[in-house]
Design a protein around this nucleic acid. Structure first.
Lengths: 222, 222
DNA sequence: CCTGAATTGTCGGCTAGACGACCTATTGAA
DNA sequence: TTCAATAGGTCGTCTAGCCGACAATTCAGG
């Protein structure tokens, strides 16, 4: 990938928009771009070169394998999201990322480099901290949901959140391109495949939604 | 409280130890110290003066009231912990802090002031970000526990963590000063009062621990 | 166009653990 | 010292939703 494209992708991120063009050019040099097609895996390196990743284009899911060898989907990320060792602390986990949209582009920095970058740019550093604070709150929210809400409620909230992020609204319905299996959704809302299937059918009968393998249509209730 | 004492308390925090003494003196001026006795409540202000709090001495619990008026204990904090609006984003929640040790001292900054402080001190800023990253991981861990472990396991992990933080180890046992009710513990591990009581008695019968209202004694298994 | 693999649909059994009820023990304020 | 409030103890009931099993459908690669 040529420098101009890198430059453009970097500046495109809200976090980096505060940087001057010369600063941007210099971080172009320490950034590492990677692209992946649907289904391809992006591994996080676990050696001394732990990295912080920025998703520049497309959608991907963060996945972990449990004891029994099952795929647990931990999160679904969109353009602009940050993943990898974004807590800036080494850790051993078996997470990896899988591209779920046709073409995924992400860029990464070595954790050490990224830390130096933050130290040199107080404004960037503060934005990054706030971004992490935001992520913290989101997780807090997920935790509270799991604590107090039943599966049905979590399922509905999940769909609503998804719709608000990626839904294409029509006059009386919201259309979602569905790239998740029931199993995926189950692990995201902390339930089981069967229960998710049942919930889909239940809401379908109630006329709240319609779905196929490729699409979910949420009816706007009058 | 006089400036010297403030100064001393501030410098005592790992995060602030990187600052020069003149910097420390200047943040003395914008810091607000508060102390509380056992059972007293420290309210977070929810106006434009949202604050970031540092616990300097003692132990406190972060509490929220649910729909039915029940106290939910969300966290228990020790000296050195940070609370309040540490995500640096305004939010409306009904959290407050209750002192559970005899004498609690904490200091706070207006969020805006604290942000300026971070912008002026890149090193402090980076440490703060890493601290938040650490908190994020801890929460991630709690979430995973809730997802995959049963109540018994969560209860045991809870005790172990507590012991590692505050336990006083004897030759063959670890003694914990108990300032939490079964109800408190229940909400921390996401269960119910009755179940916690049962678990305590179960582990007692197994000879794994002993407990009273004021003390929990974990037997080291040979 | 076939075929095995992946995904979805459905059912019944089962259990962890929530919940209500009620009783006892402890505490602390007056 | 008393008494109300709070905390702990115990027991049955009940159910959300997990889990295994298996069939039906869909898909993707040859």
């Amino acid at each position: 990938m040529n420098l101009d494209t890198k430059y453009w992708y970097l500046r495109d991120h809200k976090l980096f928009s505060v940087l001057s063009s010369s600063e941007l050019k210099s971080i172009c040099m320490i950034s590492n771009f990677k692209s992946a097609k649907k289904g391809e895996i992006i591994l996080f390196s676990h050696d001394e070169n732990t990295r912080v990743y920025f998703l520049k284009k497309g959608t991907l899911k963060i996945v972990e394998i449990d004891d029994k060898g099952n795929e647990i989907v931990k999160d679904v990320l969109q353009k602009g999201d940050i993943f990898g060792e974004f807590t800036l602390t080494e850790s051993q986990s078996d997470e990896y990322a899988v591209a779920v949209s046709d073409s995924v582009i992400c860029c990464s920095f070595k954790m050490d480099d990224f830390e130096k970058l933050l130290e040199k740019n107080p404004q960037l550093s503060l934005s990054y901290t706030k971004w992490m604070g935001f992520r913290f709150k989101r997780l807090q929210n997920k935790y509270a949901n799991l604590m107090f809400k039943d599966v049905r409620t979590r399922f509905k909230s999940f769909l609503e959140e998804w719709a608000s992020k990626e839904g294409m609204a029509n006059s009386d319905e919201i259309i979602l391109k569905n790239y998740l299996t029931h199993q995926d959704i189950a692990s995201l809302i902390c339930s089981t495949r069967q229960t998710v299937t049942q919930l889909f059918n239940e809401l379908k009968e109630q006329g709240i939604l319609d779905y196929s393998r490729t699409e979910i249509i949420l009816k706007k209730v009058a």
